[in-house]
Computed example of a mutant assay.
Amino acid sequence: MSIFRTFLYLQCCTLLIACSEQKEHATASYEHAARGAFSSALSHDGRYSLISSIHHGVALWDNQQQVLKYQWFQQQDQDSLVHTVAIAFDNSHAVTAEKTTFAVWNINTGDNVGYYKIKTATIRDIAISNQGRSVLYGRSDNVVVYLNLETGRRIEFLGHQEKINVVDLSPNGRFALSGSNDYVAYFWDTQSGQVIHRFNHPNRVTQVALDPQGRYAFTADSMAQAHIWQLTTGDLVSKLKYIARQKIFTAVRFNDQATRLLTGSPNRLVDLWQIADGEKIQSWHVTPREGSKPKSAVVLDVAFTNDDTALLTESSSGIAERFTIREANEHN
Results as ranks from 00 to 15, higher is better:
D77S: 12
L81Y: 06
L68E: 12
Y70D: 07
Y70E: 06
T101I: 00
T84W: 07
F89S: 13
Y70L: 09
Q74F: 03
A94P: 05
V82K: 00
K69V: 07
V82D: 07
A86R: 10
L81R: 05
D79P: 00
V82Q: 02
E98V: 05
W72L: 13
F102P: 04
L68T: 10
D90M: 11
Q65F: 09
W72Y: 14
Y70R: 04
A97R: 00
D90F: 09
Y70V: 04
T100Y: 02
F73R: 14
Q76T: 06
F102L: 11
D90Y: 08
V95R: 02
Q76G: 04
K99A: 14
T101P: 02
T101F: 02
V67E: 13
K99V: 11
H93P: 01
N91Q: 08
S92W: 11
V67M: 13
A97N: 01
F102G: 10
I87E: 10
A88I: 05
Q71H: 11
T101W: 00
Q78V: 04
A97Y: 00
T101R: 05
V85C: 06
T101S: 10
V67H: 10
L81F: 11
F73L: 14
A97V: 03
L81Q: 10
A88P: 00
Q64R: 11
V85G: 03
F89D: 13
H83S: 14
L81P: 03
A97Q: 00
S92G: 14
F73I: 14
Q74K: 07
A94W: 01
Y70C: 09
T101C: 09
Q71D: 11
V67Y: 07
H83V: 11
K99G: 08
Q76C: 03
S92A: 11
Q64N: 08
E98D: 03
V95Y: 01
H83A: 08
T96F: 00
K99E: 11
A88H: 04
V85W: 00
